[in-house]
């Protein structure tokens, strides 16, 4: 395909992406940020971890996204007795009284699977996590003596942050595979809260989601579009320097005068963002630039996704890990505030 072909392709897709974003926004109040980030994730072909309180609309959000993208949508609830096999197949006695093996949620739709939603992922056992890891990393799974591929698959996981009992922390290797970790919170704005409480439109989720035109995006083509976006958006020298400085700052915050209270910053950080992490950050940033109608990156593109793509990849010393939720926000804000561009 010629580059002008690419250009027109990109130009065609941009309104569609924006249309998806705006139609989801109509169904969900006070979630503009997460919706924008999920849109970015879709076109960056990255998996998303959602974290938030119960009943803030995580599931509604994902259902809306799934409906918008089209394609097959599967969902599974994480429980402590969930085993990897449960994702791949399930066995039962059929109506003829014979045992039968059917494909599980992952395999059920074959390669057409586009959205896989793993609810309460931290309730599942590490064995399940490792299967998920493979699915996310390779978009494939081995079952029934052969490899199954899911070229369009996008994994959304949801982590309950209220309960800590009977949960299994997701290993850092698995967390690193998520493009983004989004925090979903109930809207702060009073008018929005009132709207949520009293507007009957928001009370029937199924009916609400029907307002989304199904399959706004031809999901099959996204996998082909994503690399074109990545290739067409360019990064200047100054921007590369800025991105590099951001990465460096996650490893050595003290070098950029980032301070949290009177913590010793050298003691705080065990490992900064990984190389995969920053490349994912740049992927998301390029999509943001494209959505903004530019073919070059500006710092705002990176700043817009920095927190979501990087926060979950910075690892603290165990002493500080317990205070993670309060420290990580300050660290990210500090880095964004202290790294200059240009």
């Amino acid at each position: 395909m010629s580059s002008s072909g690419h250009d027109s392709l990109l130009a065609d897709w941009r309104p569609r992406a924006l249309a998806l974003e705006s139609s989801i926004k109509q169904c969900l109040i006070g979630m503009d940020g997460p919706i924008r980030h999920i849109t970015l994730a879709i076109f960056a072909r990255g998996h998303v971890m959602l974290e938030g309180d119960v009943g803030v609309g995580k599931t509604t959000l994902l259902r809306a996204v799934a409906r918008g993208i089209g394609g097959a949508y599967e969902r599974i609830e994480g429980t402590i007795d969930l085993m990897p096999n449960d994702l791949v197949y399930h066995t039962y006695i059929n109506e003829d009284g014979k045992p039968q093996v059917d494909p599980g949620p992952i395999l059920k739709h074959g390669p057409e699977l586009s959205v896989f939603f793993f609810n309460e992922v931290n309730r599942a056992r590490p064995q399940v996590h490792s299967l998920l890891l493979r699915v996310m990393a390779e978009r494939s799974v081995t079952a029934f003596n052969r490899e199954h591929f899911f070229p369009h698959l996008q994994v959304f996981a949801d982590r309950n942050r209220v309960e800590k009992e009977e949960t299994f922390e997701i290993p850092s290797a698995a967390r690193d595979r998520f493009l983004m970790e989004l925090h979903i919170e109930a809207p702060e704005d009073q008018a929005e809260r009132l709207e949520l409480m009293f507007n009957p439109r928001f009370h029937d989720v199924d009916k609400l989601l029907e307002s989304i035109v199904p399959g706004v995006l031809p999901y099959r083509e996204i996998a082909g579009l994503a690399p074109i976006i990545q290739e067409s958006v360019r990064a200047s020298d100054a921007l590369q320097q800025y991105a590099l400085a951001l990465w460096e700052a996650t490893r050595k915050p003290a070098a950029y005068d980032v301070a949290i209270g009177n913590l010793d910053m050298d003691q705080l950080i065990l490992a900064g963002a990984s190389a995969r992490g920053v490349s994912m950050m740049m992927r998301a940033a390029r999509v943001a630039a494209w959505l903004d109608g530019r073919d070059y990156l500006v710092p705002e593109d990176i700043r817009g996704v920095f927190r979501e793509t990087t926060a979950h990849r910075v690892f603290f010393h165990p002493v500080y890990e317990l205070r993670r939720s309060e420290l990580i926000g300050e660290l990210m804000t500090g880095i964004l505030n202290n790294v200059p561009a240009p």
Binding site: P299, E300, R303, N337, N338, V339, P340, A341, P342
Partner: peptide, 19 residues
């Protein structure tokens, strides 16, 4: 441009971005 950016950052106490 860099000098003015720096001056802005010094005035504001942190780098200033368009947003």
């Amino acid at each position: 441009l860099r000098a003015v950016h720096e001056a802005l950052a010094k005035t504001h106490g942190k780098p200033v971005f368009p947003a």
